[in-house]
Design a protein around this nucleic acid. Structure first.
Lengths: 342, 342
DNA sequence: GCAGTTTTGTCAATAAATAAAATGAATTTT
DNA sequence: AAAATTCATTTTATTTATTGACAAAACTGC
């Protein structure tokens, strides 16, 4: 394999040679240190600019011990849920002077582990991660290593970490309550695997809403699809093979809600006339669609910005706080929920 | 600001101390050089593993001149169009041993420039970029600097670069032809700014299809929204203020198609009964929605993988080819186009 | 047992930037 | 006038891993 330096880079050495000053003086001048005469500084800076010098962060990082780079480890950026996070995180991180390396885990624990390794290998200053949660192995590893990290969107009940999540339980409660208020009694919870904290919490919310309404919890109406949502078709098929024994669906995500909506439509069921659907994430706040899904807003934008702020606080503050941030969720009404008579 | 090294890293020095060998010997052993006895190598490797050593790419990169990192510069990852690309690029790049730094330009030329600077500053080996194209300043800068880069999705007619695009002209032609074949004669082209090559090409395709059908081109039916699609509402309003003077819309992207669909729906126009719509990108191949937009597939997955292959070829091949890859586009029928009598 | 070869491992230099210490000159203090 | 201080700059050391040159064993064959 060819291993050429990609280009002719102008180094401090080159500037030093051209200006006649030492490398160190050039370095100090460019960094606006005050023990350099203004004329010298101006001269060096000009020459540097003329020569098109771009500082070599590698050398600087090696010396200083930080890279001004963070790793963002997510399930899959092609999922709008993560895509929105990524956008906001990158933007905020950049504002604060950090670059973002993206890694997709595809919700695979091994890929997650190698992602962490790669991140460490690249000497990132910190990590923002939405953990797969199949086990807590990788998060424990992160803690062991001692690298600053923040969880986003998911958390561990019995591992002490920083995290930024939305109030999933509240979201699940609100969603279910909304359906109940509209007369629905048989509500299907179409969930993600409950080893994922947000799935578990939303289910908890669903359960408590039913309890408030004194409706017994029917395990047949609680259903799980995989985190990567493969072969949902089969699961849907199984669900409606004896007709619909529910009048409403509370889906773990908008993506899943649309998918089941589409599936039902193909089977000649109408939403909301035959089935009401409520999603989670309110992706439509970012994207106009000709179908308006009722959804729970999870404030991804704020979550993302907070996660960066939190991480950078850990990186730069002498006395970093432990951040456990839980953002409120709220109902956003669309046209996918129908009032039915009780 | 605190600037602490983020963690206690195990260095070769530490391993050397523990094993009693020199740093150099440790380095050689870990890199499987053959001038080390198998026993020594095994011993050092074991110790290294026990100590949890993760190689410091910074030092290695500084010495070797490459970072195994590429920069991906896109408009906005929260747009599914770019999100899908990003996912595929990251995946492919990782397969080939590279990490990906993401930067969003928000289609802003200055942000694009600073993104390039940051990428250079971080010593990325190469760049995959979807250029804003407001001018060719930044791309010329990239060429000047001499860093390997590949354009994705857009290209410059009169600047020689590597690129991977889809056949936008063909796509525009197919889309328009499909509408024409279904009896439409007044077709609104809802385009992106034509300084973007894909917009220009799609418009060219639109034009040639109309020409084939001997239909004069009506400038009033060619309309542009900004690249970031802000205040599209106003533009839509202007378009239909005197009622619909078109029976079909060919939209630059699926996102835009949905948006105008939604807008029309709010104004009590029905799609496809009152207006047919055809989009571009076929995002639904990745995501099920209960509305099925007829669209042009642009094979983003293949485009993305190709762009990485192309870049890595430039980085590693002794005799890198110039890659000008144009992938075919094809019609994917949905339910948003209606046959009307002529 | 000695020249010649192979194996095995060490030392010093290097990459680019930064920090700490040292130098030399000018200026101020005593 | 000698000593102390200040300023502007250079020299040397440091960060970690890798390379090339070379030294010290170990082994081969005559």
């Amino acid at each position: 394999m060819k291993q050429r330096p990609t280009k002719q880079i102008v180094t401090l050495k080159d500037i030093a040679k051209k200006t006649g000053y030492s490398i160190n003086t050039v370095s100090r001048a460019l960094r606006d240190k005050d023990d350099i005469s203004p004329e010298t500084r101006a001269f060096i800076k000009n020459t540097s600019k003329e020569m098109g010098h771009i500082s070599n962060m590698l050398a600087s990082s090696l010396r200083l011990g930080y890279t001004k780079t963070i790793a963002i480890i997510l399930g899959d950026v092609s999922n709008p849920h993560f895509a929105i996070m990524m956008k906001e995180i990158e933007e905020r991180a950049r504002q604060l002077g950090y670059n973002s390396i993206l890694m997709n885990t595809s919700e695979d624990e091994d890929l997650e582990f190698t992602s962490i390794q790669m991140a460490l290998n690249k000497n990132v200053d910190g990590i923002i991660i939405c953990p797969t949660q199949k086990s807590d192995k990788n998060i424990k590893y992160l803690k062991d290593i001692g690298i600053p990290f923040v969880l986003i969107g998911r958390y561990y009940e019995n591992i002490e970490t920083d995290y930024v999540i939305c109030n999933d339980k509240m979201g699940g409660f609100i969603a279910t309550k909304h359906l109940l208020e509209n007369g629905h009694r048989r509500i299907l919870m179409l969930n993600a695997p409950i080893y994922i904290s947000s799935a578990k919490e939303r289910l908890d919310g669903y359960r408590s809403a039913l309890q408030v309404y004194n409706i017994p919890i029917n395990p047949e109406l609680i259903c799980e699809v995989s985190a990567t949502a493969e072969n949902t078709e089969n699961i849907f098929e199984e669900l409606i093979k004896d007709g619909l024994n529910f009048t409403a669906i509370f889906a773990f995500s908008d993506i899943l809600a649309w998918e089941v909506w589409d599936y039902l439509k193909k089977r000649n069921y109408s939403v909301p006339n035959d089935v009401s659907i409520i999603g989670f994430d309110n992706i439509c706040s970012r994207m106009s669609l000709p179908v308006h899904l009722t959804s729970i807003s999870s404030q991804k934008g704020r979550m993302s910005v907070s996660s960066v702020n939190c991480l950078i606080d850990k990186l730069t503050s002498e006395t970093p706080m432990v951040h456990k941030i839980v953002l409120d969720t709220e109902l956003v009404k669309g046209e996918s929920v129908l009032q039915i008579e009780i």
